[in-house]
């Protein structure tokens, strides 16, 4: 197991290298004088010269690339055009808000999605099953920002139960949760619908297996058969594809943080795009992509822990 995890972490290195290389190539495939294009409205002769020096834009591409990798290794993500401060600094401020949002969205999706899927499978072809199928179809079809807008109008507008905008205060847990719960529900809607559908169909397949029939024939109660025998096997295919959906959580933060005017990496990214602050854009994209890669690694390892049949090589 330990060797497997170490091996997976080592495999991360080429992947991370690929991610930062793709970002480098996109940034450097800009036509024309890169310094002028990158600076846009901020362009002055001295700034262009400064950027040329900072990014070594007057040097050959391979030299620039090596320097870029060197800077990244030292945690240097460049200096923001807009704030004239290290890009990493703004990320440090924004990251906790995005983490809280992403984690809460995942928790809500799991504690709602999986039980609902189990219920739908156990009560197959009843109104409960049909209701859960319709709900998940609607949630998969609704854009996250629509769910965000409607929940904002209802719970923050009409009912006035929850604050509409902002990220809350980290020194006050209740305030933090009050600000995060609606965005988390909107962000997780697609994920929980996906979990419900996967759990339902996977459990239905497992419930047809011979060993389930045997367990029932032995006279075990339905509850024990489902939770002790069926669920363990039914959850494996679900867990195997969870990683695929995590991207929608990571990428979706950009949209949801905008809807609720929350601080976070996503809204920082969008503000930097509109402000043409390319250094900050590059920094945000690298951080979000790395988060995605790491979460994927965690789900893979979790898969190995849950399924003892997995061979570690």
């Amino acid at each position: 197991m330990a060797t497997y995890i170490v091996r997976r972490i080592l495999l991360l290195i080429p992947l991370v290298w690929g991610v930062v290389t793709i970002v480098f190539l996109v940034v450097h495939s800009l036509p024309g004088n890169p310094a002028a294009v990158l600076l846009g409205p901020f362009a002055t002769a001295s700034r262009e010269a400064g950027l040329d020096a900072q990014w070594g834009l007057n040097q050959p591409l391979p030299v620039q690339y090596v320097r870029y990798l060197g800077n990244l290794l030292q945690g240097n993500l460049g200096t923001s055009f807009l704030t004239n401060e290290p890009a990493a600094l703004q990320i440090e401020v924004a990251l906790p808000y995005t983490l809280v949002l992403g984690v809460l969205a995942t928790i809500i999706s799991v504690i709602v999605g999986i039980p609902l899927g189990v219920l739908a499978a156990v009560k197959a072809n009843t109104w409960l099953d049909h209701g859960s199928v319709i709900l998940s179809l609607l949630e998969l079809a609704a854009p996250s920002f629509l769910i965000g807008i409607v929940s904002l109008l209802v719970f923050a507008g009409d009912l006035g139960w929850l604050p509409a905008i902002g990220g809350g205060s980290f020194s006050n847990f209740g305030d933090l949760m009050a600000h995060t719960i609606l965005p988390a529900i909107a962000l997780g809607a697609g994920f929980h619908a996906f979990l419900t559908r996967m759990t339902r169909s996977s459990l239905l397949t497992v419930l047809h297996e011979d060993y389930i029939r045997t367990a029932r024939a032995k006279g075990l109660s339905g509850r024990i058969v489902i939770y002790k025998h069926a669920m363990r096997n039914a959850m494996l295919p679900v867990l195997a594809v969870v990683g695929l959906y995590v991207g929608s959580i990571v990428g979706g933060t950009a949209i949801i943080e905008e809807v609720f005017a929350r601080p976070g990496i996503g809204s920082l990214l969008i503000n930097s795009v509109t402000g043409r602050d390319y250094i900050q854009v590059q920094a945000c994209v690298i951080v979000l992509a790395l988060a995605f890669v790491l979460v994927n690694l965690l789900t893979d390892v979790a898969y190995g822990v849950v399924d003892p049949r997995i061979q570690y090589r």
Binding site: L15, V16, G18, V19, T21, I22, V23, V26, V27, S29, L30, G247, S248, V250, G251, G252, A254, I255, L269, I270, V273, Y278, V281, V285, L288, A289, F292, V293
Partner: peptide, 18 residues
């Protein structure tokens, strides 16, 4: 695989940004 390390919408935002 390297491209798949980007969430879908993030890659689109990156391309549109530049």
């Amino acid at each position: 695989d390297m491209f798949l390390a980007f969430p879908f919408i993030l890659l689109a935002i990156l391309i549109l940004a530049f």
